[in-house]
Structures are given as structure tokens and as C-alpha cells.
Design a protein around this nucleic acid. Sequence first.
RNA 1: GCACCCGUAGCUCAGCUGGAUAGAGCGCUGCCCUCCGAAGGCAGAGGCCAGGGGUUCGAAUCCCUUCGGGUGCGCCA
Length: 592
Amino acid sequence: MNIYAEFHVRIAAILDRFAKQGRLPRDLDLARFVVEPPRDASLGDLASNAAMVFAKEAKATYANPRQLAADLAIQLTEEPEVDRAEVAGPGFINIRLKPRVFTDILREILVEGVDFGRGAAGRVAAAKINVEFVSANPTGPMHIGHGRGAVFGDALAGLVEFAGSQVTREYYINDAGAQVDVLASSAYLRYLEALGDKVTIPEGLYPGDYLKPVGAALAEKYGDRLRGKPEAEWLAPVRDLAIDAMMAMIREDLAALNITHEVFFSERSLHVRHNGVSDVEAAIDELRAKKLVYEGRLPPPKGQLPEDWEDREQTLFKSTDFGDDIDRPLKKSDGAFTYFASDIAYHRKKIEAGYDVLVDVWGADHGGYVKRMNAAVLALSGGATTLDVKLCQMVKLMRDGEPVKMSKRSGDFVTLREVVDEVGVDAVRFMMLTRKNDAPLEFDLARVIEQSRDNPVFYVQYAHARAHSALRQGRAAFADLDLSATRLAAADLALLSDESEQSLLKYLAQYPRVIESAAAAHEPHRLAFYLHDLASFFHSHWNRGKDQPQLRFVNQDSRDLTCARLALVTGLIHVLASGLSVLGVKAPEEMR
RNA sequence: GCACCCGUAGCUCAGCUGGAUAGAGCGCUGCCCUCCGAAGGCAGAGGCCAGGGGUUCGAAUCCCUUCGGGUGCGCCA
């Protein structure tokens, strides 16, 4: 149970009653007030600002928010779970719940296990969400920056899925532009090299060693049949094979991070004509039918004029109608469609697939592209589908505080694979989520494998392992002890009377709310921070047991007390394991 | 020149979509622990939330503006 959501409903019902009694206007927007944990836990378990939010509308009956709050508090006291409700400050209502509310939630956790919190977004969850992420060009191995987008996207997908949405993870393969021709040219040189020719990779082509196996594969498949032929003859076959090889490599890189996409969508497929018309053409036609496409001139950018600027008439999408700064070209000077035109067609396909929400995860260098994409989705869907573009900032790779040098082998960057191989998938995944997506991230290769509290990955996993250690001790102390969830759920949980046990218990109860708000905001880092805080509550409670043995989880003299405490420990295990699993991080039972 | 993102403790960052006395880790200071309830613990100092204006019961959060950083700026993707 999400007690915050639950009491939002209760308070809304009371307000509704007041409205029917004529004490409040009838058309209150009940979504406006919130129920949340109070600033200070000593104030109570729940706090609501309802009285202040509706103070204006209530003016006729209540002179000030405190009066309305007082009336609400009286009603709330009637609720069976409420111990007391009081007015504080300018009109907050602080609610203290009966202890059994929280022990009931612990029982719920024990019964539901790692499914506690699932579906927490409830009715506010979008039914169908598409998360498009990574979408690295198929021209080389993934680098650490791609890794951030990959982890972010995958964790976000896992999060909204857990919160109750139906999720599709999708990868958009940019296999249609000039960059794949450059890839083909690069691979062709490696092909000649594999045949024994001496080659140098000129400026502008991809120099990385990773294309050598592609050259070898081409040599194996075609022998010397492509040697000396005009580009027009070898370009397509070389390109196709090279793209396949690059995508295979990228899939492996993703697999190393435990990431799989359900859909790989080819940009090139959008240009293939079915019944004489391609998806791109169809999309542009649709916009044209909505009178959003015209032939016109664009003013040159202010400031320094690009050298090759040529004032010409072009095909433009009227994105300014939807909040963009300037209308955007759909065709290049050679008549081919721009990347934006393909992207419009791509998003149109996603809209047609019936998604309620589209999430695109991009690198921050694409920030200038957001407005036009939002404009396109708005124009095509009429607002029925919303697009949320999440920009991931750069990753600065460090080692002991010093920037890491680039690797020659891969071209000019540190590959994601190198990092994963060095520090492990869990460290990479969790660290990538310890920062907001739009804040730059420093990733220290030495730090993330430290076994200390400076290392958040270790800190959280260790809490889980420590909890299991407590269970093992319990088993050792009481050989016949049944630690199954059903047995523990039947324990006398009222024995959890210590202050830090209560804190831990109440923090566990917040899990569904964290899932809900993190999913709604599309911000998986909130879950990572919650897990870290939860671990922190547990570690500090554990540490108190050092000086005060009577607080330890296992108490030789009392089977009941031990059961109650191990019930709490098991609840913690479930929530930690659940949260880590949502983020795609392992929850080990012991640290080695 | 314009757009977008960012500016919070000495450092690295949270701050739950407008709430109460702005939080955590590192670092610093002071005590305690030192061997498996191991991979440290407790406490303390430290802030004009970049500056200025506005909106309202109430602003780190929303709007305007200045300053300072980052990213991008027809026909690349």
C-alpha cells in the first residue's frame, strides 16, 4: 500500500464531502494538493498542504487556511488508521498514524516479496510507453558516453514497467545517412588490406582496428571480386555487411551491460517504397495535408554567416506553430530528405503503434533538436501522444581523480566494453544512475571498486549482503527457526519498538511512493538515491548493535524478538532486491 | 546574435514538480573503535541556494533580467 496515495484519496473524499455540504465550492481541482512525508519525522508520518492550496476557494467559509485545516483534521481523526491529526504552521495538517499501519505494511512486503511496490504508479501510469535509447550510429563500438544513455534508458524502462506501464525498449539504427557510406569506405580499405594491399586510412574515415575483422570477412565472402571495381558496385554489399557487423558488435556491448532491446528499427526501411510511397514521403504528405509544409526561405543565422551559406528556397516544416524557434528543412539541396524528415517518419510510426508516451534518450549534444521533434510529434498526434526527450550529459572518465587517456585501439575513445570488463556491470550501471541525467557525471574507475562507503555501489549491495548475514546468524542461533515469509509475517511486529527500527520500517513504507514519483518524472536516479539512503538507515542501525548488543537482530533469549527483527530485515532485503533489480543491478547475498 | 541545459557547504552532488529550521558523501575538527556485528563509529563546524527584480499565504523550485559555465545553431546524423 502506498499510504501517501491512500491518504490523498481520503482527504479528497473529505473535501468532496465539505463541498456537498456547501462549505467549499464544488469544482475544486483535487489533484492540486499533496500528501507527503513531513519535513521532520518528529512532526508525524504524513503531511498535507490541502488547506493552504484551497485557502482562496474556501474564503467564504474559512477566514484562513488554519481554520480549514482544523476542520479537515477533525475529520481525519475519524479515519481508523489515524492516531492524531493536527494543524501546524501556516496550515499544514500533520498526521500521525497508528503503529499497526506500518507493521501491516511490513507484512505486506513479506507477503509480496520483491513485487512490493509493483504497479505503484497506478492509474497515473501511462498504459503504453516506448523508450528509445542508445541508437548509437552503427559505425563502431560503443563508448562510455553511449553507456550512460544505455543504462539510463534501460533503467528508466525497467522503472516505468515496474510502476505499471507496458514498455517497449527500442533502438533506432541510423543506417541511412552518409556516415554508413563512410563506414563502407573504411571497411573497403580494410578489405583491400586483408587481401594483402598496403593501405592507409585517410582523414575522415574510421581508423579503428575494429574494422579489420570486417575487412577479413569481406575478403572471405567475396575473394578479390570487389577489388578494382567502381564504388557504385562495391558500396552497397560492403555497407550492408559492415552495418551488420557493427550492429552485432553493439548488441554484444549492450549484452555485456545486460541490456536487450525488443525492437531494432532501421532508418533505411523508412525510405523503402511500398505501393510507390515510402514512410518518409507518407509522413511529409500527412504534414502537407495539415498545411504544415511549405516552400520558403530561411533567414541566415545571426552572427557569423556559414561560409557556404546559399540563400535558397526549400521545403520547410512549420515547426514554429508548435513552439520551435524556426521552421525546419525537410529536404537537402540535392533533393534527398533530411535526417529530420526520417525522424518525423520514425516517430509517426511510433505514434501509429499506439503508444501514449514516447521517451527518447539522447546525448546532450542533440539538445538543439528537441524543440523540432516535440513540434513534429505534436503536429502528427495532435497531443494524443506525448514525447519526452531525456538528454544525458557527458561522462568524464577518471582514475584516482585523474582523467583517463583515450584508447588508440578503438579509434579515439575509451570503449564501453573496456570499462565494463574492468569494473563490472553492476558498478557501471549503478554509478551511471547516481547523477541526474542532465548533470555531467564523473566516473572514477578506482572509486567504483572500492569496498568502502565512498562507493555507493558497494554500500547498497553490502547492505543487502549484511541483511542476509543477519538471517544466517538467526538460523545459526535457532536451529529450528522458520524464516519463511509466512512465518515472519505472523511474528509480533509490535516488538519493533526501537527508534531506529521504526525509522527503517517507515522508510521501507516509502518505497511505492518513490517508484511512483521516479517513474512519473522519468528519473531513475531517484530510486538509486532512495536505495542509498535506505542502505544508510540500515547500516547505521546495524552499527548501533555494536555498542548496544540488545539491539542486535538476533537475540538468544527471545525467539519472538528475533523473529520480529528478522521480519524487518527480510522486508529490507525485499525492497533492496526489488529496487536493485529494477535498476538492473545484482543483489548479492554475501560480499566476497 | 539566438536557443537549450546548468549554477545549492571548501569539493562532488540530492532536494520528491511551490511548503515548515535547505540535506548527504568526501574533506576539515574533536572524541571512540581497531580484529570478523570486518570492509570503521559518533559528534561538530561549514550556506545571501550566482546577483537583482517579480508572481503569492509561502520560492532553491515558477516568470523577467544580469553575470558565469556547457551544448548546439539550413543542406551532418
